[in-house]
Computed example of a mutant assay.
Amino acid sequence: MTDNSESATRRAFVTAAGTAGVLGLAGCTSNPNSGGSGGSDGGSGGGSDQLSGTVDIAGSSTVFPLATAFAETFQQEHSEVNINVQSTGSGGGFANFFCPGETDFNNASRPIKEEEMQQCEDNGVEPVELTVATDALTVIVNNDADFLDSITVEELQTIWSAEAQPETWSDVNSDWPDEEIELYGPSDASGTYDYFIEAIIGEEGPGHRQDYSATEQDRTIMQGVQGSEFAMGYLGFAYYSQNSDSVKAVAIDDGDGPVEPSLETAKSGEYTPLARPLFTYPAKSSLAEEHVAEFARYFVENTTDQEVVANDVGYVPLTDDQQAEQMEKLETAIEEANA
């Protein structure tokens, strides 16, 4: 894949992203400032043709399609800026790339953890937390799983927690078939995994069962569930929405009746407890580089774009007030980075 994927629509790219897992250079391990020295200064308020350099991004597979969509359009306007986006999982991105100072941004489907903040601090990296969208984390089953259209939070907890570890569907609900449960989901490097524990299993609970097929590729989760009548998985709504004919989304009953995952139910707050904010974290030091700061601004400016965020990718855009709040936070960080 080339850095400027002009021939593909964003919608096609989201589908392909689950397999490819990367935009631009696959390694994504260059120094955060590696692109700065090669770019022209551009001066204050320089034109778009004067921006050049490299922006390296790792992190969440859930935020990946949103970041790649914005990277594509930004590179069309700034052809001398090379943006590399890698899908490593939120935790994998923080631990292996961002906090060691190897990347300029880390995408995350949950807030940065205390131990990750400490690792960043130890390496002189200061993350700037920016909310970029809302996701409806989606539980999926096979299209032929006629026995399961909705599930309670308690049943979901029973299936996925390390405590019960039921082997068959009937072990969870006597009305369900006496067939072995096959489970597919994100690995423990994923923010989706962390959020699922927090929302469904409970952070003080027994933990997430480990006898399941774990992957950082959402497409692999889709294919696993699609291939077995008695399989279940969970992933970000964007990947489900692009493949909704292949699998079935399960409505979640949090006590007030089943609610299906959608942009509308996530935005209204009805889809509990699996609606969640999504983030990107630029490193403050990287924001001293003009091309990095301009891409960060572009990212936040476009978080209200209904066409891209909702229609093309599949997340709830920010409101104007939310965007203004994030932009103010970003501009403060840019100013401090250049002080």
Results as ranks from 00 to 15, higher is better:
F64H: 10
S187P: 10
W176P: 01
P206G: 10
Q323C: 14
S174M: 01
D254A: 13
V172S: 02
G207C: 06
G233L: 10
V85E: 12
D245I: 01
D135R: 01
L156E: 07
E301A: 11
E290G: 06
A136H: 06
M222H: 12
Y281F: 08
T19S: 12
E203L: 07
N4W: 14
E264T: 03
T332S: 14
L137H: 15
F64N: 03
F97G: 01
V316R: 05
F13S: 08
Y234N: 15
E260W: 06
E129M: 15
S34K: 12
F64D: 07
G255N: 03
D305S: 08
R110V: 15
R297A: 12
E328H: 13
S161Q: 13
G202T: 05
S7T: 13
T138H: 03
S246Q: 09
E155Y: 07
S5T: 08
I151F: 01
G124E: 15
G42V: 01
P273K: 12
G224A: 05
F13V: 00
A67E: 13
D253I: 02
D104V: 03
Y195T: 09
C28D: 15
I112G: 11
A145E: 08
A17L: 08
A26F: 10
S150W: 00
L25R: 14
N143P: 06
E204Y: 04
Q75L: 04
A67K: 01
G43E: 09
S190K: 09
E155L: 04
E80F: 12
W160P: 06
D135I: 03
E328V: 09
I83R: 05
F94R: 04
Y193G: 04
A145Y: 04
D175R: 07
A293C: 08
V225W: 06
I252T: 01
E198T: 05
F237L: 00
G89M: 07
K284W: 04
A26L: 12
M232K: 04
R209Y: 02
G191Q: 00
F13I: 07
A214M: 12
V125C: 09
E336P: 11
E182A: 08
V14N: 03
K113R: 12
P317E: 00
S30K: 11
T319C: 10
F74C: 01
P206Y: 03
A251M: 01
E182H: 14
P100D: 08
E121H: 11
L235M: 14
S87V: 13
G227F: 07
A324H: 09
L130G: 12
V300E: 15
G191P: 00
A20N: 09
E6R: 14
W169K: 02
D305Y: 02
S79I: 04
R10K: 11
E216L: 14
L25A: 08
E102G: 13
G27Q: 15
E167Y: 02
S190E: 04
R11H: 04
G205K: 12
C28Y: 10
D211M: 09
T152R: 02
A95R: 15
C28R: 15
P282Y: 05
D149Q: 11
M232L: 09
Q119H: 13
T134A: 03
N31F: 09
E121C: 07
D3V: 10
Q76V: 05
Q323Y: 13
F74A: 07
I201N: 07
I334Y: 03
Q322T: 08
C99A: 09
L235Y: 02
F295Y: 11
D188R: 14
V153E: 08
Q242F: 00
V81F: 00
I181Q: 05
G92N: 00
A133W: 08
A58S: 15
R11G: 02
R11D: 04
